[in-house]
């Protein structure tokens, strides 16, 4: 990435920052429209910079531009829309677009997992809570943002820092992707019982991304899988404990006792 491209990127970020700044909810005269124009301009400028300065035309794909636009504009709307319901629904859009970006990078399994977990479970729960908690009107804290300038400044400086660094990454050429798809890379990692099965069920599936993901996760990172399971269990218990309705109990509760006296006069249970 040339220096000129880098500076062009910084310019684009500045433009985008201005757009997001205007779009953030505020009391008084709305400047959403001008902000939206600026932000869209910034997004398209970003894609233009990428197209001319970064992406190797031989490997570029039109889908990248499409889904990058959807993801970035959607994300912008998530953080700037005054109605949380819309934010959540825009987020669905972002999740689907990001899933598409992952598919473009060959991570099909991860992409579908993203859609199932995020769009199918997490976001619908968010939507559920939003709808339950906020049934009418638009309260003041949704129509006002706090210190939008500092926030935008910090965020976009960070963005610029990362992007400036990203310019030094080696371009992923044929070598990288060839290593990904080569059977040799697969064969090196498939000393697992799953593959030694002489079952016909494995036919036609042996090259797929999901199988290789399974091998990697279940062979190389099996401890992490266990830890993830424990984490989910803990989260489940935590969520149940948090949202449970409190049953009034007899006797003094811990909260009624002055600080420092707990454990001395009140039994811990």
């Amino acid at each position: 990435m040339s220096t000129a491209t880098t500076y062009a990127l910084y310019l684009v970020f500045a433009l985008g920052g201005a757009g997001v700044y205007f779009m953030l909810p505020r009391t008084g005269r709305s400047r959403v429209l001008s902000g939206a124009v600026l932000a869209s301009l910034a997004v398209f400028a970003l894609l233009a910079v990428l197209a001319f300065g970064v992406i190797d035309p031989a490997h570029g794909s039109g889908y990248f531009y499409l889904f990058a636009v959807i993801a970035l504009l959607g994300a912008g709307r998530v953080i700037t829309h005054p109605k949380p319901t819309y934010s959540a629904l825009y987020f669905v859009l972002v999740a689907v677009a990001v899933a598409a970006l992952l598919v473009l990078q060959g991570a099909e399994f991860l992409a579908v997992a993203l859609v199932i977990i995020y769009a199918g479970a997490i976001l619908i729960t968010y939507a559920f809570v939003i709808m339950l908690a906020q049934q009418s009107g638009s309260p003041i804290y949704d129509r006002q943002s706090r210190e939008p300038f500092i926030a935008v400044f910090a965020g976009f400086v960070l963005m610029a820092a990362i992007a400036g660094r990203a310019g030094e990454l080696p371009l992923a050429g044929e070598t990288v992707d060839a290593a990904l798809t080569a059977p040799a890379a697969l064969a090196a990692q498939t000393e697992s019982p799953a593959n030694q099965q002489d079952d016909s069920a494995q036919e036609g599936a042996d090259e797929s991304n999901s199988l290789r993901m399974g091998v990697i996760i279940m062979v190389n990172y099996v401890v992490v899988v266990q830890i993830a399971g424990v984490l989910l269990l803990i989260a489940m218990i935590g969520a149940i404990a948090l949202s449970r309705k409190k049953v009034p109990s007899d006797g003094p509760r811990a909260a009624d006792v002055p600080l420092g006296e707990i454990g001395r006069k009140v039994k811990p249970y």
């Binding site: 992406i55 990078q105 060959g106």
Partner: peptide
């Protein structure tokens, strides 16, 4: 398949 840099920038 596509390059890396543009994805990193979009991610950022």
């Amino acid at each position: 398949m596509a390059g890396v840099t543009e994805y990193v920038i979009v991610g950022a």
